[in-house]
């Protein structure tokens, strides 16, 4: 694929790989709202119900990244990178016990990327 909507940093991918071994198949779901919202949540694939209300943005280090459709409407012009920081989230995201937290870095998609991705 020439362009993508979502990527992951090496540091974040390392943690995902580690958690994959511990928990099996995983997914990212972009959260919204209060407190720890506006951050990506790493969840066990079996645990979280995905349906047509979610949109698949791509794969990062072999796991799918989803966001709800209505949220995507406001995000669709931006490129996302899953990054890692130290911290203590209060959600159910699987990296939290490690004292780490995934965060999203964003940039605007360029014209040529948008043309390609909207095809």
């Amino acid at each position: 694929m020439k362009f993508n909507r979502v990527e992951i940093t090496e540091e974040a991918a390392e943690i995902v790989e580690k958690l994959k071994q511990q928990h099996g198949d995983l997914i990212f779901h972009q959260s919204g709202g209060c407190c720890d919202g506006s951050s990506p949540m790493l969840l066990s694939k079996e645990d979280f119900y995905i349906d047509d209300n979610d949109i698949w943005l791509g794969e990062v280090t072999g796991i799918p990244f989803y966001m709800s459709h209505d949220q995507f409407e406001y995000w669709k012009h931006t490129h996302l990178t899953v990054d890692l920081t130290s911290g203590r989230g209060a959600s159910f995201s699987l990296e939290i016990p490690l004292g780490k937290r995934f965060i999203i870095r964003s940039r605007l998609l360029k014209e040529e990327e948008l043309t390609y991705l909207n095809k």
């Binding site: 720890d36 919202g37 969840l43 979280f48």
Partner: peptide, 13 residues
């Protein structure tokens, strides 16, 4: 629950 939407969905499940 008070928090964000993804965990909210998970708790509802």
């Amino acid at each position: 629950f008070t928090g964000e939407t993804t965990t909210g969905q998970l708790i509802m499940q």
